[in-house]
């Protein structure tokens, strides 16, 4: 397994790109491509990744890059891979799609490629809303979250549905490899990308990628927030290889979801009732993932840390 020290120096996603400071997507792309290496060709559907990664005549990618539309990542990967195979070229074909492009508009195309078990690597960069268009709700948006289409109104506050269980949908295609990743767990991240690279067939890497303006948070805490997501059970690190599920990182005692929520302006309006509802959802998920077979449900939550409230200044700094 590659360690951080063994990662290559070469930057296949160069500096000078135009992502926001602290961008979780840029961080994940850079490190994924570090592991995948130069014999890689990428497709990026309509997303921030297209805009900050290429603006004619400039580009950050130093591997072949293709883009056409929003909803077709799976299909474009299939087509590209077929051409390479026909020409006898060994290329890792990778798609970097967002949550909107995967959970919603691109689900059909992804499902087609998964069901055909095409030899491609599908990476979903999940920042839990349509960020490129300016923060609108997607199927990946968590319960309670503010977005511009789930505003905090007088009658309805934030998103009323829980995050769609994309993992189970993908795994149901009986593909060789599905894994969830977080940039906050570098070794786990590197290992899973490397593993996905070396497996044949349809592989899916589900990356948790904070968005600074969308989550209304301090750019310095991009990595920290992913760690808190894992410690609280909001994000779970596991992999499913040929149907066998394995937890790759088990946190200690579950941290209160409040610790995670309070780092982000998008949740700051949540009522105790809503926070409680989200905590119950997390507990269910926690049991599903971490509970030993036959043992009783565990839902012991460490008391919330004394968190600093998200201040007015913070809101100003990170915009409306």
């Amino acid at each position: 397994m590659i360690t951080i020290k063994e990662l290559p120096d070469e930057n296949l996603f160069t500096a000078g790109h135009t992502a926001c400071p602290g961008c979780g997507v840029a961080m994940s792309i850079r490190n994924a491509i570090r592991v995948l290496g130069k014999d890689t060709a990428v497709y990026v559907p309509a997303s921030c990744g297209v805009v900050f990664g290429t603006t004619f005549p400039y580009g950050a990618w130093k591997v072949p890059f293709f883009h056409t539309a929003f909803e077709n990542t799976g299909a474009c990967l299939t087509g590209m891979q077929a051409a390479f195979e026909k020409k006898g070229k060994k290329v890792t074909v990778v798609g970097f799609a967002g949550d909107g492009g995967t959970y919603d508009i691109g689900l059909q195309s992804m499902s087609g490629a998964a069901e055909r078990n095409d030899d491609v690597l599908y990476i979903c960069l999940d920042n839990e809303a349509y960020m490129n268009t300016g923060i609108q709700r997607s199927g990946g948006t968590p319960f309670g979250a503010w977005t511009t289409t789930t505003p905090v109104g007088k009658h309805i506050q934030g998103n009323r549905r829980f995050k769609k269980n994309l993992g189970d949908i993908v795994v149901a295609h009986e593909i060789p490899y599905y894994a969830t990743l977080s940039i906050g767990q570098p070794l786990d991240f590197i290992r899973k990308v490397e593993k996905a690279k070396n497996i044949r067939g349809f592989r899916f890497l589900h990356m948790f990628t904070p968005c600074i303006p969308g989550w209304k948070m301090d750019p310095a805490r991009t990595v920290e927030v992913t760690k808190r997501a894992v410690e609280s059970g909001m994000w779970t690190l596991y992999e499913v290889e040929n149907g066998e599920k394995r937890i790759t990182y088990k946190p200690g005692k579950m941290k209160s979801v409040k610790d995670y929520l309070m780092m982000q302006g998008r949740f700051r309006h949540m009522s105790d009732e809503d926070i409680n509802a989200l905590q119950m959802w997390v507990c269910k998920k926690w049991n599903l993932h971490y509970k030993e077979k036959g043992s009783p449900d565990i839902c012991e939550i460490a008391p919330p840390e004394e968190h600093h409230a998200v201040t007015e200044e913070h809101r100003e700094m990170h915009g409306p």
Partner: peptide, 11 residues
Amino acid sequence: IGPGSFIENKV
């Protein structure tokens, strides 16, 4: 211009 040329863009 082209692949890797964003290096021209000092941010």
